[in-house]
């Protein structure tokens, strides 16, 4: 009953409106990129959710490892001065 070889998994990214970035919406199986885009249209944009679709083979995505989350992102924790709220601006100046 099972097909010999499983179709590759594709991750699907949709840009919802002009000006916004593509956003990951889910994944699907398809034999090639062209079919993946056609399937993505049917699975992820049935209600006008998108104006552009990217598909990428899931096996081609390199990802950071969850177990290294600490060491990878720690360095940013101590740098509160990177946020505008770190600085106090005199109230009489108004908005800055």
């Amino acid at each position: 009953m099972t097909d010999k070889k499983e179709w590759p998994l594709w991750e699907v990214f949709i840009r919802s409106q002009h000006g916004l970035a593509h956003r990951h919406v889910g994944s699907l199986h398809a034999p090639d990129a062209e079919m993946a885009i056609m399937n993505a249209r049917d699975v992820y944009t049935r209600r006008n959710e998108g104006v552009s679709i990217w598909v990428v083979r899931a096996s081609d995505i390199a990802a950071s490892s969850p177990s290294e989350k600490g060491p990878l992102f720690d360095p940013a924790n101590s740098k509160v001065y990177r946020h505008p709220t770190f600085y106090e601006i005199p109230e009489e100046l108004g908005h800055m």
Partner: peptide
């Protein structure tokens, strides 16, 4: 058509746990 889509979203979620689509279909 939506029901088919819902099935597909859910199969993908299941696959992230290490089961293959073919196994699920089987």
């Amino acid at each position: 058509q939506d029901e088919a889509g819902h099935g597909l979203y859910l199969y993908c979620a299941a696959e992230t746990l290490g089961v293959s689509r073919d196994e699920l279909m089987e």
